[in-house]
Amino acid sequence: MSFLTRYRWWIVTAAFFVAFTLFTAEFQQAQTTAVLAATLRQSTPLVLGALCGIMCERSGVINIGIEGQMLMSAFAGFIVASSTGDLLYGVAAGIACGMIMGAFLAFLSVTLQGDQIIAGTVLNIAAIGLTSFFFQQGRSLPTGKTSVMRFGALSDLPIVGRVFFTNRPLTYLTLLLVPVIWYALFRTTWGLRTRAVGEHPSAAETVGVSVVRIRYLNLILGGGLAGLGGAYLSLEAVGSFERLMTNGKGFVALAVMIFGRWNPVGAWGAALLFGYANAVQTQFQFRGWLADDPQFIGMMPFIVTIVVVAGFVGRARPPAAIGQPYSRE
């Protein structure tokens, strides 16, 4: 019952979207299905970025380098996949690249106790520089991008089948990761320790939890999630690498994380909202609405982010120890 009162606005919003969707589906099933499927696709990198942010921030470390982690991983994944001809290696390279950058962020902000925002900015700028310098035009994926996985009869269901059961592998994986990380964060020892370290590191240290080890672990694992998001962009969404292809998604993921109140399930809901805004934007373009002024459609997701961060979230409370380097003294 407390769940219902606590999340009443979420439930109302979700119910509204479902009702609206069913209503429009009566008339234009194809378009509705397309919008919903695009919503899920567009939300995937945001969910992964936000999960990375949650893992880092819940342990008390700000990560504004998600954008850079995703960009670099998209690049690494693409290069490895195009030279080995195996997408699996590409995805693994993307994850590994994100983890290395996460470890580097941990080194700067945990071991050296430097400023976390600046450390993240270094990741972002380094990623732009490195990917631009080493990128060569004309490379491609010999296998093409990841292929659609179908689930027999489930995939043939109207709307639901097309939206949920005709996706590509990384999208399924992301849907799986949301409850897994929620469970890990709120129902396991690791999760309890993470949250303790993020709220009150010296208290956690007093009862024998190593703040340094937890922060390293979370930043590296979180980096892997951002890396998966990057691999999704180059290997599943687009099928090639483009300069600056993350295009602000790492930052939108931060907004998604805050909107979801540092909760994996909340962040998933928030990412769906942003995905929906993007999907509707694509529909607008497809139908030629506002075709003369595409700029107004282009800025829509960003305005939604601002409105959401300013209006709905207001003063959402981040983990208490966030942004402060920890030293044992």
């Binding site: 504004i64 930052f251 805050i258 700029q295 107004f296 960003f302 601002i306 961060v309 209006g311």
Partner: peptide, 21 residues
């Protein structure tokens, strides 16, 4: 509103680019 400036300024960059375009 307590909206963090790192997020809003980045979003406003994209909005400004669209508006000036």
């Amino acid at each position: 509103r307590g909206a963090h400036e790192v997020i809003t300024t980045i979003m406003l960059n994209f909005v400004a680019l669209n508006i000036t375009d």
